[in-house]
Simulated scan of single mutants.
Amino acid sequence: MSTRPIAPRTPRPPGALRLGLSRGWVEIRTFSREWEGVLFTFLLPTVILALFATVMGGFFDMGVSAVDYFLPGLIAMGLMSVSFQTLGVSIATEREYGMLRRLRGTPMPPSAYFVGKTILVLFLALGQVVLLLGVARLFFDAALPTTVAAWATIAWVFLLGTVACSLLGIAVSSLARTPQAASAVVTFPFLILQFVSGIFVPVSALPEWLLNLASLFPLLWMAQGMRAGFFPDAMAGLEPSGSWELPTVALALGIWCVVGLAVTLTTFRWKNRKDG
């Protein structure tokens, strides 16, 4: 009785998640090689906080110290910086120099690329927040939240806000014709939003029409959600509605996640316009 040799099994290719994790490690190592970008990304919110605490500490009168007041807004600003700004510029650059086209020609599934970018953004966001909180606490005696509920609020605002701004960054990257244009397209609206979303100027001091305009974008809701986690409940009266409106914050950020995903799916390009 003859027996047929058993053919060796072909190993299954790694899945999208595994490839995405590997891609994320590549993204982190690539980003870390540019030490100027690393310093700017991690230190900018911390430097601004230190300046506000030093310059405004003696005459700041909002019921809390200057560092305590500006800390949640600067966290929100930093999250939008490492997601919206970083992805908007970096993806446009990769598209311009043909890196996206070459990646698309490999067996790597497209989803693995976006998983890698997600890991990079989370790495940058967590590192930036940890550094900012550490400096605020150790050098300026900032009052950090002491309840599980407060940290839970900070956590879900962190996740929803980061996802929403990341998707917007990916979507915006397709609008620019060149990497230089991408920097302007991303930086200009981000700079304006910082001044109309309660980051540097209290929302109570903003004109109603300007506040209504800012409410159309995620940064205002991210800052408001962060204030709800860091500030005592009594300070909710300083908000335009007199409350933190956390369900509205979650709804607004959730809508931006859906809108960002829809725009990304319909506009994302692996090639630049010259390649068709």
Rank of each mutant, 00 (worst) to 15 (best):
L79V: 03
L87A: 03
G73M: 06
K117Y: 01
G37K: 02
I75R: 11
R23H: 10
R101I: 04
S83W: 06
P109R: 14
P110R: 14
V129Y: 04
S65N: 14
R18A: 12
A66H: 13
Y113T: 09
M56D: 12
G63A: 08
A125P: 06
T30E: 08
I28Q: 04
S32L: 11
L51M: 13
A50M: 12
V115E: 04
T46R: 00
G24Y: 04
V47I: 14
V89W: 03
R101P: 04
I28R: 02
G73A: 12
G63M: 07
T41M: 08
V38P: 03
L19D: 00
G20E: 01
P110N: 12
L44R: 01
E36R: 08
L43P: 00
S65I: 14
P110V: 11
G105W: 08
R95L: 10
W25D: 06
S83P: 07
F123K: 07
T118D: 03
F114Y: 13
G57Q: 11
I28P: 02
E94P: 00
S111D: 09
F70K: 05
K117L: 11
R104E: 13
F40Q: 02
T106I: 07
K117A: 05
M62I: 01
R29S: 13
F114H: 13
V47Y: 00
R104M: 12
R29K: 12
L49C: 05
F123Q: 07
W25L: 15
A112K: 04
F52V: 09
T106Y: 10
G63S: 08
F123I: 09
I119W: 07
T118C: 07
S22W: 02
P107W: 09
G105K: 08
I75C: 11
L39D: 00
T93I: 02
F59M: 00
L120Q: 10
W35R: 15
A92Q: 03
P110W: 10
I28T: 03
V55Y: 13
S90N: 14
S32G: 02
I48C: 01
V64T: 12
Q128F: 05
F123P: 09
V67H: 10
I75G: 10
K117V: 00
L100M: 12
Q128M: 15
A50R: 02
I91R: 07
L87P: 03
G98E: 05
G57E: 07
M108V: 15
K117D: 01
D68R: 03
S90A: 15
G78L: 06
V82H: 09
R104L: 11
M80P: 02
S90M: 10
E94D: 14
G88C: 11
I119L: 14
V64F: 02
R101E: 15
S81R: 12
A53I: 10
K117R: 15
V55W: 13
Q128A: 07
W25K: 12
G105M: 11
Q85E: 11
F84C: 07
P107S: 09
G20C: 00
V26W: 11
A76N: 11
E34T: 11
A92N: 10
W35G: 00
F59V: 01
M56E: 11
L79G: 06
T54S: 15
S83G: 05
S83V: 04
F70P: 03
A53C: 10
F114E: 06
M62S: 15
S22G: 14
